[in-house]
Design a protein around this nucleic acid. Structure first.
Lengths: 126, 126
DNA sequence: GTAGTTGCAAACTTTTTGCTACCCA
DNA sequence: TGGGTAGCAAAAAGTTTGCAACTAC
């Protein structure tokens, strides 16, 4: 665990904003001004492999990262692009159903809802 | 509707392989040898906007396209990368639940299962 | 001491874009 | 004849990689 990796993990653990690699890089530079973008990507890859974080790619050309490795569901705002964690229970029974529909050996599933986040919804009402 | 757009839509409507832009380009060139990759991308974008097709990006650096614009669920094989359609019903009640958890104005949702496809599952057993 | 990691920069992949020419209603 | 597309090639955007120097243990 190098200090670079620690800083990156720290940043992800202390935000719920599902940031991009670039944003993480910018934050990390505030602590380690000489850190490089390559190192950020390398460590994000290592942390992902280790199951410490998750990589999300919901309808974008770039990835976002999630410091919470437990399965949980997301709301993706089609207006501002924000990704919000949803405090709803994970429906493992869906995996049984999918298995019966022809998907063998399911390890996990992902569920995202696309719409408007509360902020954008409110703005639209004005 | 130019002939290029028609060919691209035709290719997508007649496969269930969720192909990449590159694969579509290769197929299209068999019919229209002078078609360019830029045109493929442009038309995929237009068709997506028109709701004729869907763009999928499940854990890859590149997108795949789905000629079936109706919401349905997928099984992503972690071994061979294949994406399979699942003939299970769409659970719209999940959207109600998500709305109650803080996601306003939900337009649609996506659900994917990650695991092994029947082929890879079988190979693993040997 | 050394195995693994960094910073840097160049390379790579996928997708987008600018431009001129073309096609067809 | 003119508005919308195509083809081409160059550029953009995001990510990965090779390498010499450096770190952490």
């Amino acid at each position: 665990m190098t200090k670079q990796k620690k800083v990156i993990l720290d940043i992800l653990r202390h935000t719920d904003s599902h940031p991009t690699a670039d944003w993480i890089y910018a934050q990390a530079r505030k602590v380690l001004p000489d850190i490089s973008l390559g190192t950020v990507y390398r460590n994000l890859g290592v942390l992902k492999e280790a199951g410490e974080i998750m990589e999300l790619n919901y309808g974008s050309t770039y990835s976002r990262y999630d410091g919470n490795p437990e399965n949980h569901y997301h709301c993706v705002c089609l207006n501002c692009g924000r990704i919000i964690d949803l405090p709803m229970p994970v429906h493992y029974e869906l995996e049984k159903e999918a298995a019966n529909s022809g998907c063998s050996k399911i390890l996990y599933h992902r569920l995202e809802f696309y719409g408007l986040c509360p902020d954008c919804q409110q703005k639209e009402e004005h």
